[in-house]
Design a protein around this nucleic acid. Structure first.
Lengths: 194, 194
DNA sequence: AGTAATTTTAAACAATCATTTAATTTTTGA
DNA sequence: TCAAAAATTAAATGATTGTTTAAAATTACT
C-alpha cells in the first residue's frame, strides 16, 4: 500500500471519530458537516474528499460503534461462564455503549428515514446480529434451567429498551455512578429472568 | 366569550391536533409548519396567527399529550385497587401512549435543545408529575409488602424506559398485538417488583 | 347592507446547511 | 528540484424551511 493511501485511511478514521463525537453531542440532525470538520481544524468541503455525503458518514459512524459493541459482547460469550455471569457482563457492556456513545449507538432510532436501501439492509443485519447475542445467552440460561421466562424475545427487547433509555436520564454527577447502575440493572435483569 | 374568540380557540385546538399527528409521523425536526397547515387545508402563514412560533406549537403539543396521559394515570390511582392492579392498569395506559402518540409522547428526548427556559421548566414539572405517579404506586406496593425491590426510583426508570422503547420496534402487524404486549409487560414488571 | 374586526393568503425574507466547483496549496517520489 | 498527484480551501449553489409582511378575503355585528 502506498504511503498516500495509508495517510488517507488514517484521515478517514479521524473524520469518523470526530463525527462520532459530534453526533453523540448533537444527534444526527444536529451534527453539521461544518462542526465535524472544525473539530479537526479542517473545512467542511474536505470531508467530501473522503466521504460521499453526510448519510454515508453517519452510516459508517453507526457501523463502527455497533461493530465495536458486537465484538465486545462476543468476548463475553466466548468465556466459560454461566449464562447469568455472561449476561451480567453483556449488560455492563451495553450500558457502557449506551452511555458513552449516546446517540451514535442507537443512531437512528429512525433508520428508515436516515439510511438508504443498502445501508439499511446492513444496519438491520448488524442490529439483528447484536440482539441475537442476547437471545443466545437467554436461550442458554433457559436450557440450563437457570432462567425461566415466557416470551424470551420480548424479554430481550424489554431489557435492551430499559438500558437504551438510560441515556435519557443518566447524569454522571448523579447519586449513583455508572458502575452502581450497571450492578443494579444486572440484578433487575436476573430477577426478571429467573 | 365572544363568538370569534370561541372560533379562534377551536381553530387553535385543530392546529394542535394536526401538529400532534404530523409530529408522531415525522418527529420534531421532520414536522414542518407547511405540512401541519396542509393537513387542515391552510397555509403555513396562518399558523402564526395562532402560535408564536414552531417551538411554541411543539411545546403545546407535548403538554397536551402529557397532560392527557397524567389524567388517565390518575384515574387508575384513584380506584380502590391493590398496588399490583393499579400498576397493571398504568402500564396499559403508558404503553398506549407510547405506541399511539409515538413521538409526541416522549417528544423531545432532547428537551434542553428544543424548549426555552420557561417551557422547559413546565415540561420538567409535568414529567416529574408523571413519573411521580408511578413512584407512588410502587411505594404503596412496598409498604403493603406486595412489592420488594431495591432502589425503587431506578426500578421506575427501568420500567418506563423499557416501555418507551416499545415504539422503536412495535409493529401493529407483528406476531403479538398491543393488548398481548401490554399483558406481557405487566407480568414482567410485577415479577420484577415482587 | 355596510363597516370594522378577524382570518387567511401569497410572496418575500432570512437563516441554515449539504453539496459542488474551480482554484490553490501541500505532499510525494523520481 | 520539480512535475504530478493528493489534499485542502473558499466561495458559490441550491434546497429546505421558519418567520414576517402587507394585502386580500371572510366574517361578525349593528
Amino acid at each position: 500500500m502506498k504511503l498516500s493511501e495509508k495517510k488517507s485511511l488514517k484521515k478517514k478514521e479521524q473524520i469518523l471519530l470526530s463525527a462520532v463525537k459530534i453526533v453523540n453531542r448533537h444527534g444526527y440532525d444536529g451534527a453539521t458537516m461544518e462542526e465535524i470538520a472544525a473539530e479537526l481544524l479542517m473545512t467542511k468541503g474536505s470531508l467530501y474528499y473522503y466521504f460521499k455525503n453526510k448519510g454515508d458518514l453517519m452510516y459508517q459512524c453507526h457501523n463502527l460503534i455497533l461493530s465495536k459493541a458486537i465484538d465486545e459482547l462476543k468476548e463475553h460469550i466466548n468465556e466459560e461462564d454461566s449464562a447469568e455471569e455472561m449476561l451480567r457482563n453483556m449488560i455492563i457492556t451495553h450500558i457502557d455503549f449506551a452511555i458513552e456513545e449516546q446517540e451514535t449507538f442507537n443512531l437512528i432510532t429512525r433508520p428508515y428515514h436516515t439510511f438508504n436501501k443498502e445501508q439499511l439492509q446492513e444496519v438491520l443485519k448488524l442490529r439483528k446480529n447484536y440482539s441475537g447475542l442476547f437471545d443466545q445467552v437467554i436461550e442458554k440460561g433457559l436450557s440450563s434451567k437457570a432462567f425461566k421466562i415466557k416470551e424470551p424475545i420480548i424479554a430481550r427487547m424489554f431489557m435492551l429498551g430499559s438500558m437504551n433509555w438510560i441515556q435519557q436520564w443518566y447524569n454522571p454527577d448523579g447519586r449513583l455512578n455508572k458502575k452502581e447502575l450497571q450492578k443494579i440493572f444486572g440484578d433487575y435483569m436476573i430477577k426478571l429472568l429467573k
